[in-house]
Every structure is written in C-alpha cells, then in structure tokens.
Design a protein around this nucleic acid. Structure first.
Lengths: 158, 158
DNA sequence: ATGCATGCAAATTGTTTGCACTTCA
DNA sequence: TGAAGTGCAAACAATTTGCATGCAT
C-alpha cells in the first residue's frame, strides 16, 4: 500500500521528512472510499499503531493541504473532511456572466458540500461533471462591464 | 422596531414566553442586512442591554430554528450565521432526475453557502432564483426507477 | 404562583500550540 | 548531528448544559 508513490515523492522532493505517521495517514486517506475526517483518520491510524497523537493528524493534514495534496470539505456538521487531490483531474466548473458572457472557473471544492448534502439529505446524486452557474461577474456588478451586453461567445478559457 | 409582529405572534401562539431578550434578538436578526452570527447578535444586544448572556442568544437561536422562523447558514469559516425565514417566500429549487424525469424540491438553504462563497471568493453574484440540478434520484439510483426511462414530462409539483 | 427563561460557570468538542524529546536525512 | 517531526498537555473558540434564581403569563 505504501501510499501513492507520487505523493510520497512530492513530499520528499519538497524536503519534508517521510515519517511512518505521515505514510500511514496518507495510506488511510488514499484507501478511504470517500471524504474522511481527522478523527476517523486518527481512529484508523491507531488500529495499527496506537501511539499516534491526534495533533500529528492535524499537523499532517495541514501540511498536505498546504502542499495541495489533499482538499478540505466542510459540510457544516462539525467535521471537516479530507480527500486526496489528484492534480491531473483537478476538476473545476464554470461561472458564466449573463452580461458580458465571460466565463470563469471555480474549484470543485465549492460544489462538494452541496453535492454531498444533496446525496445525504435527498438521496439525489447530482451530475456535477460540468456544472455551469449563471450570474453577474464582479466587473459587471461594478458597472465596469466592458462595452455592451454580449451574449454567448468566447467561453474560451479552460 | 418591536420585531416582525408576525413572528412575535408565532412565538406567543406556540405558547412561548415573550421576553425582552427574545424580542431584542429577533429585532436584531430582522434589522440585519444579511446573515448574522451569534456573536454579532450578542454584541449588538449588549449595546442596548449589557446583561444578556451569550447562552441566551444560542438558546433563542435554537428555538427560532426549531420553529423554522430563522435559517442557519454555515460557510465553514467558523461561524454559523442566521437569518429570518419568511415563510411565504420560502424559496426552493429543483432536482431533476435524468432517468425518470421526476423533479424534487430542495431548500434554498443548501444553496446559500455556495452562493455566498462565490460572491466572497469570486465576486460572482449567482442567479439562484430558479436553480435546477440534474442527476439521479434515490429510486433510480437503487434501480427502482419505475418503468423505463422517461424524459421530460410531469414536473408536476410547483 | 408556577414553570418556562435567564445568567453564570463549568463542560464539551474540534482544532491548535508550546515545549521537551525523538528521529529522519 | 541538527533541524524537522512527534507526543503530551494545556490553550482555544464556538457552542451547550446544569443549576439556582427570576420573571412572563
């Protein structure tokens, strides 16, 4: 299992030490089917190695988060959950301005809490592969919309 | 401002006592432009009446929440925020099943955190008046989808 | 008057931090 | 060897709770 070699490499390359604790934590996040909380990680780590302290879990999670190797999801139920972030398929969605037509990407993470809550509370599995939200972009809100109303068009970026 | 008379009535009708603390808390939520946190409410209450304890704020908020007079929004930034819920225009959106075509309503509250974060983090004001999310409903996910694939059709409800 | 509400302080919970000790590189 | 990492306990911040007192009804 030795945790995604890619990630282990990332860590080492950045000059961080590879401690058994870190490897176990990575393994557990990696093996976890879905998002997992710090407490759950702690519990599982302790099954193999009961001396690991919860603060180590948090410190490692913060490190991995800083290195953008994992992502954080907060559903507002009192637990923050974590998940491996595979950079190559780091999903994002689009915000489309109804005034200038410009489109902007936003992180999948913002959608995840909604997605998870819809599943948990309504049993509904939302299609979020390509999510587009319409609205008004910052510039247009400020009245700086360049030129006139431009509908449809260069969704370019991506 | 004697807080929305409607709400005060609701409380009284349910047999709850109308204490000055509760009225002040309601007034403050009512007067607040946007979502407001327990701490902010507490601070404002104390400006007028410095002996109100924070636990009273929380207890009142929980009561109002239970009575569905206010709604809770958690953005995951460490504060839960509250807002008056005007039942008559209690917004909801739709989940549309791509398999059976059925549509289900979901609470506006679920969308709010996303909406707020898009505004704060991207300056983007999402149009959420009529939001529809496509996906697979519980029954269809379980393979209980009644009959065959039925596209479009009785979106009936609402 | 009587029982629901409040104030206060202490408990809880998830997370962070200071510090001495350990261990990877 | 020496800095980075860990364990432990204590600190934190938001929220909740137990209990005696107080005030709407």
């Amino acid at each position: 299992m030795t945790a995604h070699p890619t990630i282990v490499e990332s860590l080492r390359q950045e000059g961080y030490r590879l401690t058994p604790q870190r490897i176990m934590i990575l393994d557990i996040i990696n093996d976890s089917m879905s998002h997992i909380s710090a407490e759950e990680i702690h519990r599982k780590v302790q099954e193999q190695y009961p001396f690991v302290n919860i603060s180590t879990i948090y410190r490692t999670l913060n490190l991995l988060k800083k290195l953008r190797l994992i992502s954080e999801t907060d559903l507002g139920d009192g637990y923050v959950r974590y998940e491996l972030l595979e950079r190559e398929r780091h999903r994002h969605h689009h915000l489309v301005c109804r005034q200038c037509g410009e489109s902007f990407a936003f992180e999948d993470e913002l959608l995840k809490p909604l997605q998870i809550r819809l599943l948990k509370e309504y049993g509904f599995a939302a299609d979020v592969d390509h999510f587009a939200i319409f609205g008004l972009c910052q510039r247009c809100r400020r009245g700086e919309g360049r030129g006139g109303v431009r509908k449809e068009g260069q969704h370019g970026a991506d």
